[in-house]
Design a protein around this nucleic acid. Sequence first.
DNA 1: ACCTGAACACCGTTCAAGT
DNA 2: ACCTGAACACCGTTCAAGT
Lengths: 233, 233
Amino acid sequence: MTSRQYNSVWFREPRKAASPGRSREEIVMAAVELLDAEGLAGLSMRKLGAKLSAGATSLYWYVAHKDELLELVYDEVWGEMMVPDPEVMGWRETCSVMSHSMRQVILRHPWSADLIGRMPALGPNALRVTDQMHKAFRLAGFTGLDIDYANSTLTAYVFGMTIPQVAWDAAAKDHDYDQDRLREFVAKAAAGYPELVERINAVDYDNPQVMREVSFDFGLVSVLDGLERRLGT
Amino acid sequence: MTSRQYNSVWFREPRKAASPGRSREEIVMAAVELLDAEGLAGLSMRKLGAKLSAGATSLYWYVAHKDELLELVYDEVWGEMMVPDPEVMGWRETCSVMSHSMRQVILRHPWSADLIGRMPALGPNALRVTDQMHKAFRLAGFTGLDIDYANSTLTAYVFGMTIPQVAWDAAAKDHDYDQDRLREFVAKAAAGYPELVERINAVDYDNPQVMREVSFDFGLVSVLDGLERRLGT
DNA sequence: ACCTGAACACCGTTCAAGT
DNA sequence: ACCTGAACACCGTTCAAGT
């Protein structure tokens, strides 16, 4: 395999821009725009180069390879997540706000869902968010490794809830938003599974967004309750 | 865009094999092997064709496109998940066993982590697992949509906990398993974040597997406690 | 009905050559 | 120091042509 040393993007000073639109910062910005518009599959070094009116391979002066670029855009996503100060909001409220923000950011940048399983979140923005969350859990009363565990649990919930949702949205978009057909499809697929059939009609297909919010909050409250229980109050 | 109708793989009868190693079943099996060996990026129609001693494009007789093949292998993964009968095990134990099984399956097939955000789980195996889980939550005392919500919450936790772990493993493998360097790297990256620095040395770098298990169980118990709380006992 | 190879329109990345 | 285009080794997919 590659067998390179662990020298992350984050440890090399970004090279200075020589022409307009060619700093690391601008490259990353353009990449995010391209990703938002065309998804992960729509980002190619060639297209990105063109967008910056540069030769496709010019970018390799600023980024070692595409994966590095993805590390950079991934952290950009973390940069959009909001974490209130747990000292003024209290830990539960902090967790709640942060969870909703995290979810919204991923839904806003669906391609980021694919990156979560691809590279660890080690950029400065990710670390800042994690740091704040650790603070929240420390203030809540967790100590030692339990701080990490509690944070992992909450983050896992948010990711796990949001990532498959992105997949659903993508499938729906790909197949022309035809809610009725999708519903029919699911009903047909679920036929023969008694438990599924039972409740398939209970689902409110007309207000999927609302149902999702309710579902998300149900789980969030459950997770926070479960964590609170660890505090042994 | 493509704008095709919602006609999933699951509704077309698989075409019969004409030569040995060319049924849908065998194609999927070979694909899983290739994926296990070389990861998602290592699966190409050409390589898969070669593995089956077929022309690269012969596969298109059995599968409409690569995405469809991925849907099939994805469901294969769901087929490996074990769900005990909740009527004999009780709901909490059922959830626990299923969660660990789900996690192990994903770790065994790391490429599956990438598919979770890419396509909905609508295959027969996925439906079977979901059906069983719904049964467990119904027996637990949940009713109506709460059954869906509870199941979503648990599944989200397991996915969200496991997917980023796969990313870590991939990064570690890519960078030569050098635990010491990785540790040093993380320490350096975390410098400047007081909460992170504080506990970075508490992490047991020598037994990462053990820590992960502990972490997973911590979160799992929390989630199950939180769900139980919804039952209002 | 099933399979093939050629062809098309793409990729990421390297590298010698330019300024 | 920075950028380029050509080139290499790949992709997924289509399709006319074979049996």
